Simulated scan of single mutants.
Amino acid sequence: MGFHTFDPARADQLEDPSRYEYVSVDELLALFDARPDDVVADLGSGTGFYTDHVAAAVETVYALDVQAEMHELYREKGMPENVVPVTGGVESMPIADSLDAVVSTMTFHEFATPEAMEAVADSLAPEGRVGFADWTADGTGSSGPPLSERYSAAEAVEMCEAVGIEVTRAEDRRETFVLEGRI
C-alpha cells in the first residue's frame, strides 16, 4: 500500500459536509457504540471534522494525528475542551490512558500496518471497541485516495483478527467499508 498524509494546505476540504454522504455521524457513533463516559482515540483526526461529533458523545477524545499542523488548524477552528490533541503515529500510540474505544474515519489506509494494528489492540481496555470507516479497495476510486492505497473490508478484518480484535460487523459499500469490533 502507498501511505500518505493529507496535505494541510488542502485542509479546508476536510470540512466539507458532503463527507457525510460516505459516513454519517450516527453511523460513526454506532460503529463503536459511543458512551458518555468513554475515553476514545480518533486516529487521523485531521481538523476534527468527525472528532467534534465524537467529542459531543463521549467524555474524552484523544485526537491523534501525525501532523502537528492539523492540530493547529483544529485549534483555530475551535477544539472542544474534552479533546486532547496528540501528535504521533498509530504504531507508537502515544496515549497513556487505556481506551474504551478507537475510531478512525477515512484514515485506515494511512496507518494500517501490523505494528499499528498491534498498537490499537494493546491500547484498548478489556471489552474495548473499534469502529473503522474508510475508502474501500472494492470501490470505483472516483473519490478518495487511489484504489492501490485502499483496503477492502475483508483485508481490514484480517488485520484486526490477527491482533485479537473480534470483528462483529464488516461490509464493503459503494465507495467505503465499515468495520466494528471489540477485544
Rank of each mutant, 00 (worst) to 15 (best):
M1Q: 01
M1V: 04
G2M: 12
F3M: 13
T5D: 14
T5A: 13
F6K: 05
P8K: 08
A9W: 04
A9L: 08
R10C: 03
R10Q: 06
A11Q: 01
D12E: 11
Q13V: 02
L14K: 02
E15Q: 05
E15F: 01
P17K: 05
P17Y: 09
S18Y: 04
Y20H: 11
V23P: 00
V25N: 02
D26M: 07
E27P: 01
E27V: 01
L28R: 07
L29N: 06
A30E: 00
L31D: 02
L31H: 05
F32L: 00
R35F: 14
P36V: 10
V39L: 14
A41H: 09
D42Y: 14
G44V: 11
S45R: 03
G46C: 10
T47E: 09
G48Y: 13
F49D: 04
T51S: 00
D52I: 11
D52K: 00
D52W: 12
V54I: 14
A55S: 15
A56W: 07
V58E: 04
V58M: 04
E59R: 15
E59W: 12
Y62F: 14
L64Y: 12
L64E: 15
L64T: 09
D65F: 00
D65T: 04
V66L: 04
Q67W: 14
Q67A: 10
A68I: 05
A68N: 04
E69C: 03
H71W: 11
Y74A: 07
R75T: 13
E76P: 01
M79R: 10
M79T: 15
P80E: 00
E81S: 14
E81P: 08
E81V: 14
N82A: 03
N82Y: 07
V83L: 06
G88H: 06
G88F: 06
V90E: 00
V90P: 13
E91S: 13
S92H: 13
S92A: 11
M93G: 11
P94A: 09
A96S: 10
D100M: 06
A101Q: 03
V103A: 13
M106G: 04
F108T: 09
F108R: 03
H109A: 07
E110F: 11
E110D: 15
F111P: 12
F111M: 12
T113E: 02
T113Y: 11
M117D: 03
E118Y: 12
E118G: 06
E118V: 05
V120H: 11
D122E: 09
S123I: 07
S123P: 15
L124N: 04
A125V: 06
P126T: 14
P126I: 04
G128Y: 11
R129W: 01
V130G: 04
V130N: 00
A133V: 15
D134K: 08
T136C: 14
A137H: 07
D138E: 15
G139L: 05
T140H: 08
S142V: 08
P146M: 08
L147C: 07
L147F: 07
Y151F: 09
S152V: 00
S152G: 05
A153L: 08
A156P: 10
V157N: 00
M159Y: 05
C160I: 03
A162S: 03
V163T: 06
G164R: 14
G164K: 15
I165T: 08
I165E: 02
T168P: 00
R169Q: 04
R169E: 01
E171V: 02
D172W: 09
R174K: 00
E175Q: 12
T176W: 13
F177S: 05
V178G: 00
E180F: 12
E180N: 12
R182V: 07
R182K: 12
I183F: 07
